[in-house]
Design a binder for these strands. Structure first.
Lengths: 214, 214
DNA sequence: GGATAATTTGACCGATTGGTAAACATTACA
DNA sequence: TGTAATGTTTACCAATCGGTCAAATTATCC
């Protein structure tokens, strides 16, 4: 008889690694659109191209799949903020942070939407991570920004709301993609869309945060 | 025998008005958190304090409830943008648009989340409205902004992305409320939160869009 | 090649889903 | 006050939900 995956202690099989990858990929497709409650195991199984019991052989519950997915996304999602360098030039650090976040919205829109879905539902599965590691990281970087402002390198501003505004403006292009596309129309829905956004956002934030000598 | 509501042609009863209001209120509670697929009629019925068949007497399907809700929200949601005055002072128009949007995020977070949920799912129920009335309104206001920029009243910028950035930054405080709360911590989660946000955003946008003489 | 472990499947379970039918209760109005 | 229209409830339906089980199949390793 097969031993349930979670109870196993030995190393993972080649098949396990492959199948789990396929499943998480399919789960990302489904969860990112319909959220946790709105998604069904059958949907995911169909996208993954395997039977439902087979899926449940690798992840014993729907929650286990969702958790595995969230854990993975949460880590990579914060990488741009981790790369935010206290010793770099303020203006170029902010500029490249915006660019990195925008690239993630372009290259990983499903991950962005998965996270957004979780937030909309009140973060029932990740509230601890928000209050713990996330808050700690943001606190650290906010202090960096605050120091820059104190030293006159950028305009005085609330560092937390600055971070929020970078998050929201960049992720908007992933989460509200339909709306952006509908408003811009077919003529501006190509790849150049992200270049336009990057140019605009860099102007907004860099000019908005530059010290005024007037 | 009772005639299904949708087939009726006569004017609405007092009871109808009251009950439909109660139902939509409950539906907003539920849909805004769990999205369309993730919400159940039973949940809504429980929140509304009435039996499921009674609910279905007023709205014959789950979709009908959702549609009624979306239609109502969509209209009021665009009011701040409609109020955007082409003849006003650019700086104060942008300033008060931000403030109005932020007030809506504070006072109607459920409406914001309902809309966000719909966007995340690819706007299956409102794509026509986005491409039609919404695009038309945005096009009109974008032209106003473009004229301001051409006449040197504000910095040159892409008016569409400007509007997107105001939408995203303000709605963020409703849609990602959990995250904002978690990051700011209990000490900054009071009412002053929105004042801080307003101050920061006005600074960001006004300075970011002001003409530079350097 | 055979034994053993890992994987896959079809049949199935109880609970929940969106929605219906019809009996029953209440209201509005002449 | 009677009665017809409106409103509410109980009982129920087929479909789908998350998940289990045992049998069948495949991969692994000596």
């Amino acid at each position: 008889m097969a031993i349930p995956r979670a109870a196993r202690t030995q190393r993972r099989t080649r098949i396990q690694e492959e199948k789990e990858e396929i499943i998480l990929e399919a789960a990302l497709d489904v969860f990112s659109v319909s959220g946790f409650r709105g998604s069904t195991i059958d949907q995911i199984a169909e996208v993954a191209g395997m039977s439902k019991p087979n899926l449940l052989y690798y992840f014993r519950t729907k929650e286990a799949m969702h958790r595995a997915l969230i854990d993975r996304v949460l880590f990579t999602w914060l990488e741009p903020l981790r790369a935010f360098d206290a010793n770099g030039d303020p203006e170029s650090e902010i500029r490249s942070y915006i660019r990195r976040k925008l690239e993630m919205a372009r290259d990983f829109p499903r991950e962005s939407r998965l996270f957004a879905n979780e937030m909309l539902q009140g973060a029932p599965h990740v509230e601890d991570e928000l209050r713990g590691p996330l808050k700690a990281l943001v606190d650290e970087k906010a202090e960096v920004i605050r120091t820059w402002a104190r030293n006159g390198k950028i305009a005085k501003c609330d560092p937390y709301h600055l971070i929020f505004s970078i998050w929201s403006t960049t992720q908007h292009y992933a989460d509200f993609d339909v709306q952006v596309r509908a408003v811009l129309g077919p003529e501006h829905s190509g790849e150049g869309r992200f270049e336009d956004a990057a140019r605009y956002l860099e102007q907004l934030f860099v000019d908005g945060l530059r010290i005024r000598h007037s």
